[in-house]
Design a protein around this nucleic acid. Structure first.
Lengths: 341, 341
DNA sequence: TTGTACGCGTTATCAG
DNA sequence: CTGATAACGCGTACAA
């Protein structure tokens, strides 16, 4: 079964390929109503399906968006197991498909750039999650396509950014604990990198402490790359330090580990120690006890990222990235925080 | 910055475009060593990046694989929040990228087919997860590309299938409960569709009961589309039925809900009721208590699916799909099952 | 080794 | 104003 081309359609309709192209692309002003009809019918009858490769070759539009998420270093697998990224991807894909775009989802190997992929595939745009080294972004700019960064504090007018106010989030979480009577609050967090989201949350934590006149104790911050297992480990140390009555974990995944670790160490949550998380991933609600956490609507964020990208694409050159799009934050009070005296 | 084409390279190297193409595609036998060198250097210096659209147009190979996962019906979002699918996708993507392929990940709208996408994008192959209606598969065959089905009992020599022995899994789970002294075992399951994975697990459940001389009570099976919430609901009903000492949930997600529901109803797991799940998604280990479950190595399954697809692609026409690839199953004994009697 | 037709859709140019 | 012709985008592979 040979492929049906635009030529087949044009022959059947008794018109030129140009006419077919016009009709199929909605440039109907250029063509008589009668022709439109004939072309429509012929395309329908032959069940014509355009070849996007040819289209991409002809006009440099691929209707393809690159989406990059971080991957585990050892096994080179996407960090999609992390619900945070999978939710984001859900939001992105749905919105893109709705507008007739497809998504190439991939990780990027350490040391490699993304420019190659972008050029090879003639990507119309890209959404980048995660944090990479400076050179990665520099390289990316050469692609000259609209790019949306998620969770980045990179400050470059070339990029669109969809983020949240992480500092505020950190503040909110800590404040919530303080408001519930806690004065001895540990922080369990991912690696604090300059200008990373985690650093901002950390800053928010310190601001809330300071504002409440509480002492900031560096010994109460536990920092390590984020994982459930690390949460457990940190919890062990926390259980050993009497006096700590609450923990702010800068991601839900870690918070879950903390809860587990605390329980293993014989502490009850929230009776002995309160825990608050960040992100509101689906399992937060399923944890025992259900996790109180800072909620960002992750899926919505994906949708927003896709929308910003799409409008940048249609606007072409004359689109000025706005500073940043900041998504709202709220707090879900569940059962992992207790009010103390 | 204009795009560097093969022509630019050929000029710089002082050879023909054909020679460049040969060199860059490893057909080096067709060309002198000297030419190879010149081309290599020129390509390097100009930082040449091939355009896959052109390549796809010229030889019908896109190096693009379509990956389809189910989506929620209401909001048209990928079911990627389901860790089962995200793990699978991780495995697939990593393996594909390793071989220079990219993955277009998408859902497919209800009523729509996937043939269009497949043709538009000139996909080299596809991996389909989830269950669709007959016509979907019929349609798909017209694409004439290798296709791997995951979790399907569709029996068609046109398709490759990578699955597990679901019946055995259902049997193993139930048998495990029986071996631990349970005789009154409820089943909480997703929709039992003819030839679906859930039906097989259900069959395994019945076989184990029968083999042990236990009575199969239809009132003890709770069937509904799978979700955490449904697990909770079913648990409520189970708690109300005295005598039930164990639950086999046909997916971990549901099992987690069951545990939660049981606890809410004042039952202790596993002291009052034992629970066993299926899949071994990451949260199974994080649940309280940690969930005993049938483990299938999901990521590995994704890798296997990708590998089968890749070999089918390189083999071209002369590749006979094997019957099915069956991945091994085992059981992870954690803390949600208690020995009684 | 090279010249070049080809794959397919787009669009500028030009004729009716 | 409608619509056809043809050049173009880029890489491949056959004929010479």
């Amino acid at each position: 079964m040979k492929r049906i081309t635009i030529r087949d359609v044009s022959e059947r309709a008794g018109v030129s390929t140009a006419a077919v192209s016009y009709v199929l692309n909605g440039r109907e002003g250029k063509v008589s109503l009668e022709t439109v009809e004939k072309v429509r019918r012929a395309a329908e009858e032959l069940n014509y399906i355009p070849d996007y490769s040819a289209r991409s070759l002809a006009n440099n539009k691929s209707k393809l968006i690159g989406v990059v998420i971080p991957q585990t270093e050892e096994r080179k697998q996407l960090l999609l197991q992390n619900p945070f990224y999978s939710e984001l991807v859900c939001g992105i894909e749905g919105r893109l498909r709705q507008s007739g775009y497809h998504m190439i989802l991939s990780g990027v190997d350490k040391g490699e750039g993304y420019l190659d992929t972008s050029m090879q595939r003639n990507l119309d745009g890209a959404i980048i999650m995660g944090i990479y080294q400076e050179s990665f972004y520099e390289d990316l700019k050469k692609a000259r396509i609209p790019i949306v960064l998620i969770d980045s504090y990179v400050n470059d007018s070339q990029f669109h950014v969809v983020g949240i106010d992480d500092e505020l989030g950190g503040y909110m979480a800590t404040k919530h604990l303080i408001d519930n009577g806690h004065t001895n609050i540990a922080l369990v967090t991912g690696l604090i990198r300059k200008d990373g989201v985690v650093e901002k949350r950390f800053l928010g934590y310190k601001r809330a402490l300071k504002e409440a006149g509480l002492f900031y104790d560096p010994d109460h911050v536990f920092e390590h790359s984020v994982s459930y297992e690390y949460g457990q480990e940190a919890a062990k140390a926390i259980a050993a330090q009497p006096g700590i009555t609450a923990v702010f974990a800068t991601s839900d995944m870690v918070a879950m580990g903390v809860i587990k670790g605390l329980r293993d160490a014989g502490k009850k949550v929230p009776d002995d120690v309160s825990v608050i998380g960040f992100d509101d991933i689906p399992v937060a609600r399923m944890s025992t006890p259900p996790l109180t956490t800072i909620v960002q609507n992750i899926v919505e964020r994906g949708v927003t990222a896709a929308e910003r990208l799409l409008s940048a694409i249609v606007a072409g050159d004359r689109y000025q990235p706005e500073e940043r799009t900041i998504m709202p934050l709220s707090i879900a009070e569940r059962e992992s925080v207790r009010t103390i005296g």
